[in-house]
Design a protein around this nucleic acid. Structure first.
Lengths: 226, 226
DNA sequence: TTCTTCATGTAATTAGTTACATGATTGA
DNA sequence: TCAATCATGTAACTAATTACATGAAGAA
């Protein structure tokens, strides 16, 4: 009943395991690669990424080989056959849908307790966030356009996540532009702003549209505009 | 140097404080209201919502009045003047941009380690998630269309978050339909799928478009289509 | 040779979750 | 009067974060 074996694997564990399926990495490389790629959809602190591989090893899913750089030790991890089996099995299990944390939006939810300027500033910050993230993402992806960038053979798989990422930044950006216009029209005291009920109706209608979309009916989405 | 005063307030604290600014609530009501509304953008376990008000009280931002229902005690919390000041001050501080956790997308990132069916199933699950969330959201919002639903006077503020929410569900839904089509065209072995470099170029272009959008230039967004 | 950045970790702390427990209320 | 659901919490646990520490390599 060793300690390590009892600790359950988390999504973070499988994310690391997935990277190990591509090639062996040192812990530092692993953490760096994680930050470059998966971080956008699975953000974790660096120190966590140093711990997880140990757990994989304890489960027999990875091997650790201790090496040295001068007097400093370092560890290279590699996936085992058992690790590959565990990974493919995980790919068959139902994963969690998206989970969003958005502090700025909580602030906007209580915008009527503050000033119009507060709201406007928060919206600008969200727009700037989208801009900065997009720029960063584009910088990371651009090398692939000239045949550079790591793991080009994995691009067929990667585009699925990449498109979601850009869709999301685009969404935040468009939404913030819209929100800025709305707030612009508010009176100085946000709590005195009049609700636009037509807008509410439109929002409900759009939610219904998604809710009523028949399962796996992919053609419809291109037929009907926004 | 009492314990409570030293604990820093978190976004969760301010979310609760914001609700208290609307009216006094029992802890149960508070937790319920949180689940109905803020949960989509700030998901927290129920038990957490029972703890937070105590912290607010320790900071002097809320008062707690112990009441009784039969033999059971219950607590009603109300905001103080100091609490209102703390809230408006928080609204002036820069908040965090969106943070996304999306396990299914991590699975898709490693789709080349599994089967085409695994990927298709994961995408269907994401679509179903969007459908279910949209339905739930629409159910919560619909009463407002007939003049019902709590805090109608706050709707001018609320639509900002509501629209973001629907935008997001819509995005997940559309993306999943697109992804389903893409995976459909894959060969049986996902790792043998050929990258579509035109698609990659398009994604980078879209990221650049967001990154290059000039600050606060809201008109442009309506002029240029997707 | 010194400064900075890259590389490699551990330790202390905490925010948050899961599990547990039980009284009150309502409807069949 | 029984079962189900609503209401009200506490306790135990853990995943993750922040802070700390330091060697190696490259630049100035």
């Amino acid at each position: 009943m060793s300690r390590g074996r009892n600790e359950e694997l988390t999504t973070t564990s499988y994310a690391i395991l997935g990277l190990l399926a591509l090639r062996p990495w040192t812990t530092y490389e692993l953490a760096k690669q994680m930050e470059r790629t998966l971080n956008r959809m699975w953000p974790r602190a660096r120190s966590k990424l140093y711990e997880e591989p140990k757990k994989l090893q304890a489960h027999g899913l990875a091997t650790a080989s201790r090496q040295h750089v001068g007097r400093r030790p370092r560890t290279v991890y590699a996936i085992t056959a058992k690790g590959r089996r565990a990974l493919t099995k995980w790919l068959q299990t139902p994963g969690q849908g998206p989970s969003l944390e958005f502090e700025q939006l909580i602030q906007l939810f209580f915008a009527d307790q503050g000033t119009k300027q507060d709201a406007a500033r928060t919206i600008r910050a969200a727009a700037e966030w989208a801009r900065a993230q997009s720029a960063d993402f584009a910088d990371g992806a651009r090398p692939y356009l000239t045949g550079q960038g790591p793991f080009p053979e994995r691009m067929a798989t990667n585009v699925i996540g990449a498109r979601f990422t850009v869709d999301f930044y685009d969404l935040v950006h468009r939404w913030s532009q819209w929100a800025a216009e709305v707030v612009e029209r508010w009176p100085d005291d946000p709590s005195a702003a009049e609700p636009d009920w037509a807008l509410v109706a439109d929002i409900v209608r759009r939610a219904d549209a998604v809710a009523d979309a028949s399962h796996g009916d992919s053609g419809d989405v291109t037929r009907s505009g926004r």
